[in-house]
Amino acid sequence: MNVVVCVKQIPDPAAPQALDPATHTLVREGKLILDDSDAYGVEMGLQLAEQSGGGDVTLVSMAPGGETSGLRTALAMGAAKAILVSDAALKGSDALCTAKVLAKAIERAEPDLVLAATESTDGYTGTMPVQLAELLGMPSVTFAKKVSVASGNVSVERQTEAGYDEVVCPLPAVVTVTAGVVEPRYPSFKGIMAAKSKPIEQLTVSELGLDPAGVGANGASQEVVSVVAADDRKAGEIVVDDGEGYARVVDFLDQLKLI
């Protein structure tokens, strides 16, 4: 079974983040890393491909400047190859545009299963995988906390407001996974070395058969009007616990008339 895993390379979320004051897009300077949310899809893909007894995992990603550092991490985990759509025209793309670009790239890999995170850590729009499924003409199951494949169907435990549903769906399909779905492996030294020579096919928007004028900020049909600091909550009183910290909590609960 061939699995495509959609991955995003993002600025390190632990580092300070900022918006570009002119374009209102996230500043993406410095090294990009594999979005932590995507490691679960990569791991799930590797396990499912292995269990099926053949086939492999192809990463599909998009970046305006040819960045590959995050892809190497996922290749080091065990993915066989990557397709990277890289084009300066992609800067400022909205989720629908991203889905259109990724759909074109994914079609080339002819996957049985497409995996993605439920949402990215930096933009968390959370609709791209379903838009992708619709463009690919595939069914989709979102918010998977358990995934298995048998006799041409994917079975998913899908989170719901009340608990979870067991959902079955014929392949090919798009499934979005939560962070609890599997425990991602750490790349081994051997994996890291092997990743350096694994193929990353780089494609431009025109090479995918799309019009560069219709993607990126030009193709987006939404814009940011303004960005202002929130009326933020002020940090309150901070008490270092000396064994009596609980008593301050009791006083606070008293003030609120909760006890």
């Binding site: 910290g245 609980y246 301050r248």
Partner: peptide
């Protein structure tokens, strides 16, 4: 702690 009205810096297992 940046949004807390009351912050206790301590081990939850003790507090």
């Amino acid at each position: 702690f940046s949004v807390a009205d009351l912050g206790i810096v301590g081990d939850v297992l003790k507090v």
